[in-house]
Amino acid sequence: MEALTSTPEQTLTLYRVSEDAFPIQPASPAREWMDSTPGRFAYRCLPMTIANSSGWEIICPFAFEATWDGGAGKESLTIRFLDEVADTEQVSSHFGSGVLTFRIGYVFKTASGWATWVKGLPNEVIDGIQPLEGLIETDWLPFTFTMNWKFTRPGTIRFERGAAVAFFMIVPYGGDGPRPVIREISENPEWESSFRQWAEQRRDFNAALAESDPAALKKGWQKTYFHGQTIEGEKAIDHHVSRRRLQGVVRSCGSDAFEQTERGSIYPHWAPGGYSEVGMRSSDYKIRLRKVRFEGG
Results as ranks from 00 to 15, higher is better:
247 Q>E: 12
186 S>T: 02
205 F>Y: 15
138 T>C: 04
76 S>K: 01
14 L>R: 01
96 G>K: 02
61 P>Y: 08
159 F>R: 00
251 R>Y: 02
34 M>N: 08
28 S>A: 13
71 G>D: 05
279 G>N: 06
96 G>N: 03
81 F>P: 00
94 H>T: 13
116 T>M: 13
177 G>I: 07
178 P>G: 08
251 R>C: 10
125 V>H: 07
55 G>Q: 04
9 E>N: 10
217 L>S: 11
237 I>T: 02
56 W>K: 02
190 E>T: 07
230 T>Y: 12
227 H>A: 15
124 E>Y: 03
180 P>S: 14
293 R>W: 09
269 H>K: 08
75 E>H: 07
156 T>E: 01
154 P>H: 09
189 P>M: 10
44 R>A: 06
221 W>L: 08
225 Y>E: 14
35 D>F: 05
93 S>N: 14
90 Q>S: 03
64 F>Y: 04
153 R>H: 03
109 K>N: 09
288 R>A: 05
101 T>P: 09
263 R>Y: 14
49 T>L: 09
294 F>S: 04
59 I>H: 00
275 Y>I: 10
37 T>Y: 00
289 L>Y: 06
205 F>A: 01
297 G>T: 11
206 N>I: 01
235 K>E: 13
208 A>S: 03
276 S>R: 08
156 T>S: 05
59 I>W: 04
61 P>G: 10
39 G>F: 08
195 F>A: 15
51 A>N: 11
89 E>P: 00
146 T>K: 10
